[in-house]
């Protein structure tokens, strides 16, 4: 019971942090999304020790584990693009897939090559 209450408190704290960031971002016209701003603020609070890790740990770990869930209802919204998918779907898919593969292999490939080089030097 106590554990459940602590868990709910952690979810409430993380929600307050995020919705506070959302307010801050729109109020100050910061061109960074609220979720990234909230992530940076929370990282800062944890690093300074102003928020102890135990205060958010089980709630944050639960949300991270199920992060994919929250995208599912949004992704279902693709259903509203049926007409566009029927007319230009193949070309659009090729553009998205092709540019994603190029970006992925360049980013990861470069990072892995740089890491290998610095290991050989050391």
């Amino acid at each position: 019971m106590k554990k459940a209450a602590a868990f709910l408190f952690q979810l409430a704290f993380l929600s307050a942090l995020y919705y506070g960031s959302e307010f801050l971002v729109s109020w100050l016209h910061i061109p960074i999304p609220a979720s990234v701003t909230g992530m940076v603020i929370l990282l800062f609070l944890l690093s300074k020790g102003w928020v102890p890790v135990q205060m958010i740990e089980s709630g944050a770990a639960f949300l991270n584990k199920h992060l994919a869930f929250f995208f599912i209802p949004i992704a279902a919204g693709l259903i509203t693009y049926g007409d566009l998918i029927r007319s230009d779907g193949a070309a659009l898919m090729a553009v998205i897939a092709g540019s994603s593969v190029i970006g992925l292999l360049i980013t990861s490939g470069l990072s892995s090559a740089l890491a290998k080089r610095s290991r050989e030097k050391a």
């Binding site: 979810l11 993380l14 929600s15 942090l17 995020y18 919705y19 960031s21 959302e22 609220a34 979720s35 990234v36 909230g38 992530m39 940076v40 603020i41 929370l42 990282l43 944890l46 890790v53 958010i56 740990e57 709630g59 944050a60 770990a61 949300l63 991270n64 199920h66 992060l67 929250f70």
Partner: peptide, 9 residues
Amino acid sequence: GPATAALAL
């Protein structure tokens, strides 16, 4: 949003 911010952990 809270779940994304929680990636700070």
